[in-house]
């Protein structure tokens, strides 16, 4: 692998400081129907070598979080209206988008759900993987292609030497995602953001790709943000989880603590909705109702209309993340009734 990773930022960061620290992030979209608060006070840290899963259903804001970090919010509709994204002593919110993108090309990388639409159909994959080496590091073509070959090998494309000259459409979905991963790790990023990396893949391929990501992380020690709607897919790989609902993190903690002792009724409802956790033939216990309209969020806790534990206070006041006595140190939930929810165990 390349030894020429930029090191300029290393010395300014203390060893146990978070790699990325998102604080109170607020993102708004202006639509024809009004202004939508897509993220409302999202905070989390990612450390080196750590994987955090951001989980939620469609519209919860999990992908917007990734877009905000990478300066990929659709312009001009979307914009960050508050909070900070600190990476290596810099605030990505105040940095011009052009500088954020430069950083994202080298130190923060991202892979998307649909690998075919992220690859350029008219260029050979070897050329595309070699591009970051040539563009960012100025390595000449022959060396860059040699590095691309190495990467293809590393992400498990069989017969890489021949296939480096193939076009994206000649690969299967799983192989395309491997190629995307190869491109993402090409410059040895310190942080990898994977937005639904396996959602478009078959289950057997999905488990291979998740294993690949976990192995690469163990080798490189990069931090990883895994965004998914599927609570099962991330359980093996992530150490911590944050559950999002209507633009807020409603529960966070170690993944075991969150899954085994969900303290927010929404987390609990999600876990109970999964068919595999229910005995065959028994009825599922879905969350009643549907996800809220961000244009007309309920007052107080956005989940209260669907919540079996809701009390008057939930209608009037927005609950903040808190850790009551006796919980694991990192386990927090934004619910006034967490004690009652936990007592249901």
């Amino acid at each position: 692998m390349s030894q020429s990773t930029p090191v300029a930022l290393e010395k300014s960061v203390p060893p146990d400081a978070p790699l990325l620290s998102v604080q109170n992030l607020q993102v708004e979209f202006s639509t024809s129907a009004g202004v939508v608060r897509a993220l409302d006070g999202v905070s989390f840290d990612v450390r080196r070598g750590e994987t955090i899963a951001i989980l939620g259903e469609s519209g919860s804001g999990k992908s917007v979080t990734a877009q905000a970090i990478m300066a990929l919010l659709p312009r001009p509709a979307g914009s960050i209206v508050g909070g900070s994204i600190r990476y290596a002593d810099r605030d990505l919110v105040t940095l011009p988008a052009k500088d954020v993108r430069r950083l994202c090309g080298t130190e923060i990388a991202m892979i998307f759900q649909d690998p075919l639409s992220s690859l350029n159909p008219v260029f050979r994959v070897g050329w595309q993987i070699a591009e970051p080496f040539r563009r960012r590091l100025g390595i000449d073509k022959r060396q860059a292609l040699a590095k691309a070959l190495e990467l293809l090998d590393r992400v498990g494309i069989p017969d890489a030497e021949r296939r480096i000259r193939d076009y994206p459409h000649q690969f299967s979905g799983g192989q395309r995602q491997r190629i995307m991963i190869a491109m993402a790790i090409a410059l040895e990023p310190k942080l990898l953001i994977a937005d639904e990396p396996t959602t478009a893949l078959d289950v057997t391929v999905q488990s291979q790709v998740m294993k690949l990501l976990a192995n690469l992380q163990a080798e490189t020690g990069m931090g990883m943000i895994l965004i998914s709607h599927d609570l099962g897919v991330v359980a093996d790989v992530a150490k911590r989880a944050a559950i999002m609902y209507a633009g807020r993190i409603v529960e966070a903690g170690t993944i075991r603590e969150v899954y085994d002792h969900p303290a927010h009724p929404y987390t609990r409802g999600l876990l109970e909705s999964i068919p595999s956790t229910t005995v065959i033939g028994e009825r599922l216990t879905p969350i009643p109702g549907g996800p809220p309209n961000l244009l007309a969020l309920p007052t107080g806790c956005a989940f209260h209309p669907r919540c079996p534990h809701a009390i008057d206070r939930c209608r009037d006041e927005i609950p903040q993340l808190r850790r009551p006595d006796g919980w694991e140190p990192t386990h927090v939930a934004a619910c006034f009734r967490s004690e009652e929810v936990l007592a249901h165990d």
Binding site: H229, S273, I287
Partner: peptide, 8 residues
């Protein structure tokens, strides 16, 4: 469908 809606 999202998992909570899928269960419904």
């Amino acid at each position: 469908l999202d998992v909570s809606v899928q269960a419904q």
